[in-house]
Amino acid sequence: MSRWLAASSGILIAVGAISAVILVVLIGLALLGHAPTTVLTTWFHGAAGSWTRLALSVQEAGPLLLTGLAAAVAFRCGVWNIGAEGQFLIGAVTMVAFGTVLLIPGPGWLILSIVLILSAFSGAAWALLATGLERWRGVPVVLSTILLNFIAVAVVGMLVQGPLHDPTTTAPQTALMAEQMRLPVLVEGTRLHLGVLLAAIIAVALWLVLKRTTIGFEVQVVGLNPDAARLMGMPVGARQVLVMAVSGGLAGFAGAAHVAGVTGMLSGSPVSYGYAGIAVAMLGRLHPLGILVAALFLGMLSTGASGLERRLGIPHDLGDVVQGLLVLAVLVGGGITARRALRPQAEST
């Protein structure tokens, strides 16, 4: 019974936060001369007005779900991985490399699966750089992961304009990936791809792991109180490393699935699924199934916002404002308590 109460209070907080933010945004737009009803209907048309638009929203939710899970897994263990942005890019560039210049001959589905896993590993490796710096040199993860984001942008930019550059154009972009390295499309006439379905399966799997397994339990105890976890004989350090690897792997997979499913290449234009993942995680209250719903909502928010930009000329940047407000509203409403952050966990005893 109390479990149900806790779950419903979490849902209430999220719904309350969403309502409050929508209200604030509508009032703000009304002051700028946009009638709330027009804004809402235009937004809904953009987000779910037709099957194609809905498919686009779900497709958009895919990477958000994965980066949201990446943030949530880490945060629940008290590991401040703010680096999903960089890990996403590293995963994406690995996928593109194996889809263009490093093509491996063999049965398509097998090679594609191997490369997807490899891309996830590359994201995990990028994340573990931060863990390594924390373990050996005491560099706080919250800072190193952010700094590594900017380094990843430069590394990927260098690869896109260097070894991976499409020789047929001067634009800063890679060649299109080979057809056998693309993720199959689920719904004819859209780009809703297999990666999004995989992301949903991963969310459910992660929920079961956190809920039903010893490792999942340990991860959460480490997050709540590392000292208590240590006293109980849990391998605190090992769990933090594992969580970082999983978190980076999820973000890397998100990047790989995005290029293999949607764009088919990388260009100089920025993506911000990594940072948005933090908003998704908070809105989903760090619960894998909550994050599934939150990602769908934010996916609709994003496609609806591009409709608003096209039809009413409301800048797409407003989407970032909404995300920021949503995080604040969930935080303020939910009272997720603060904990010690900048000190390496290993030294906190």
Binding site: I82, I278, D317, D320, V321, G324, L328, L331, I336
Partner: peptide, 26 residues
Amino acid sequence: ATVVMRCDQIVTGMAINLLAVGGSGT
């Protein structure tokens, strides 16, 4: 948010960043 409402400082800080990126862009 952090002092009065006791929200987590890191996540609140990242929310501030999102707000500023979107707000300045708009």
